[in-house]
Design a protein around this nucleic acid. Structure first.
Lengths: 232, 232
DNA sequence: ATTATCTATAGATCTATAGATAATGC
DNA sequence: ATTATCTATAGATCTATAGATAATGC
């Protein structure tokens, strides 16, 4: 019994024209693999791994579900491609960008710039997809996440050590890495709670403002004018 | 073709004796409904909603999957019973317990006691199941979660306002609710990252120690001896 | 010949229901 | 009669594969 062209393919969105069998002409061909990974990323972030079916991903792109197996070996493989697409998501990669000169001359200014830089990355589409993925599939609790944060705090700690040595921060406040935690803990918390893929603009603005107010509070509570001018 | 008693029921753990049809004798009857909710909670926290099947829950308790529909209307219904079992999880319910006297006499001591109290609740089995649930199904991003935290920070803010008024905290550091955020942000972050249901003891100890070190840092950075003795 | 798609399908698993069975409590 | 369980099954959906089909690039 031949299927008439008017009928819909099983997993086809209604209203969408059914695709003929066979390789599509060049003019219609997009970058299918990228489209699939992007759709997968959105869905995984929104519904989680088990909540997202191969079928749903294919439907998003308007293709039959078997295409996915032409591009990926398995569902897990698609997930990994989606995570890989997001990149390393280094929490604080700002140090190389901002430079030592500002750190020596104006520590509060450096901290403000660092936070603004981090916030921009965290509020970006890929930064927010990352958070949603983490929070959807329990990846927040993966060893990789803990390690990244731990290393990041140690790294930022060296910065605070410099400022303690130069007299900008009292010696007895706490360990350098704990100062980093006091600065970035509340900001990271705001990120986890409010900078997710589906966050409405208001929620995102709220998160950024909270982070910036915290930064100012931190600067006022922790920094002082250095007692001795560093030798130069 | 009759099934011999040696054969296993479809979803039965191997080695476990197959249950006869019919109501079991009173001597063997436990509190099935509670057992089901507890098993459901563990599995939902570990594998997420879509990752947990009715079948898996029944198997955990050693029963056939259709029992669940004798106790609950649907899978969603079980999930709600599991969340309800955890209770309200008030983030900071410590104020009633600790009392105003300590708050007036020894603010740093009050803060330490409050944090210890909160940490105990957050590190408890049900506190950690709660976090795993939140982080497994994207509930961290629910409106309920945002509201709870927001209200909690406002609430804790009134405490800081008292201390600002009494001269224990400089006036110009920041809004009272922002002080609450500076205190509890890093602690909540540690909770979200490391106080989950499957956290090994070392990870939990690490989280608690980080929280306590932060508390001391916060106290040193924010509190001072009041300039004027409050009228009494 | 190769590539990018399609249809059709296998086999597993999922939620939920129907109806049987045996102990309990009146 | 009611209650707590069981077996069996319907119908949907899931991942993955086999094999057909048509455009492309040599």
């Amino acid at each position: 019994m031949p299927i008439t062209p008017e009928e819909q393919a099983p997993g086809q969105a209604p209203g969408q024209a059914r695709r003929r069998p066979g390789r599509p002409p060049k003019t219609q061909a997009g970058d299918t693999k990228s489209e699939l990974v992007e759709a997968a990323l959105r869905l995984f972030a929104q519904k989680g791994y088990t909540g997202t079916s191969i079928r749903a991903i294919a439907r998003e792109v308007g293709l039959s579900e078997s295409v996915l197996y032409a591009h990926f070996a398995s569902k897990q493989d698609i997930f990994e491609a989606a995570v890989a697409k997001l990149g390393p998501q280094g929490l604080v990669a700002g140090r190389e960008i901002l430079g030592q000169e500002l750190a020596d001359r104006d520590p509060p200014g450096y901290v403000r710039a660092l936070v603004r830089h981090v916030l921009e990355a965290w509020d970006s589409p890929s930064g927010r997809l990352f958070i949603s993925l983490m929070v959807r599939d329990g990846l927040v609790h993966s060893a990789a996440m803990g390690d990244t944060i731990g290393r990041s705090m140690e790294e930022t700690g060296t910065l605070f050590q410099q400022w303690i040595d130069a007299g900008w921060i009292p010696e007895d406040l706490g360990r350098p890495a704990d100062l980093a935690w006091a600065l970035f803990g509340p900001i990271g918390q705001a990120r986890l709670l409010w900078l997710h893929a589906d966050a409405p603009p208001e929620e995102r603005r709220n998160a950024r403002e909270r982070a910036l107010r915290h930064t100012e509070l931190f600067i006022r509570a922790v920094f002082r004018e250095p007692r001795t001018t560093p030798a130069g």
